[in-house]
Amino acid sequence: MENAQKSIRTDEMIKKIPVRLLKNKLYKGLFFFAAVFTFVLLVVLLARIFSQGAAHLSWDFLQNFASRRPEQAGIKAAVIGTLWMMAVVVPVSLLLGVGTAIYLEEYAKQNRITRLIQMNISNLAGVPSVVFGLLGLTIFVRVLFLGNSVLAAGLTMSLLILPVIIVASQEAVRAVPKELREASYGLGATKWQTILRVVLPSALAGILTGSILAFSRAIGETAPLVVIGIPAFVAFLPKSVFDPFTALPMQIYNWTSRPQEEFHFLAAAGIIVLLVILILMNSVAVWIRNRYEKKY
């Protein structure tokens, strides 16, 4: 009797399986479509920019300064300016970021101050870049009288990407096996010697990978530059970090916001240059990651 009752229910359940499988297939198709859609978005984005900008890419474009006449305009000042800015960003953010990471991972005691610093870092990472621009405008441009110089922009960008570098470096330092440290202590090395000669070299690949990604963010970031008043129309190169300058995204923004279509093509060409730089940096990061990833 029980058997009879049971088999009816099981059979009913079995009968519904094809419908359930169909539902599963539909959802799977939908999710797959979303993935394809995302992929297509990227392809369209890149294809569109290359098709618009490729014709304007030339040696002259890289060699010329900005100009009111689109056919003569170039991005020399912007590219060189971006390099100048990064010459500030890279040492400042690396030093502060790695230093903070080492402090937090190696020295800090588990107390309220440490927790405050840690919480502060994760909140800082979520502050919109335009707000960092306001900070830079007040502190660096006005209070420290740096004006719209390479240094003001570089310091603002350094603070913007600092949380990213700290978190990446913390992870890299944390991944260094305990045994390595213990071996070093066992030889009588002091804590700082151990950090400098054992921990940092082993964590270097991870630190660099994360930092390069942060640097590429600094290169592409526009809003803080706009807010601290970096000009877009510059026909000279900075001679020191105290000189005014322009940067790639500023130049692209300037061209994009002009109504004439010729300037849009220039913007696209500028974007290609920007993207090529970013892709090169990312490739280096991936290369470092793949090369050193499976060390332990």
């Binding site: 099981t10 359940m13 079995i14 399986i17 094809p18 359930r20 499988l21």
Partner: peptide, 9 residues
């Protein structure tokens, strides 16, 4: 023979 049926039984 769907695995779903097999696993139901």
């Amino acid at each position: 023979f769907h695995v779903e049926e097999l696993r139901t039984r």
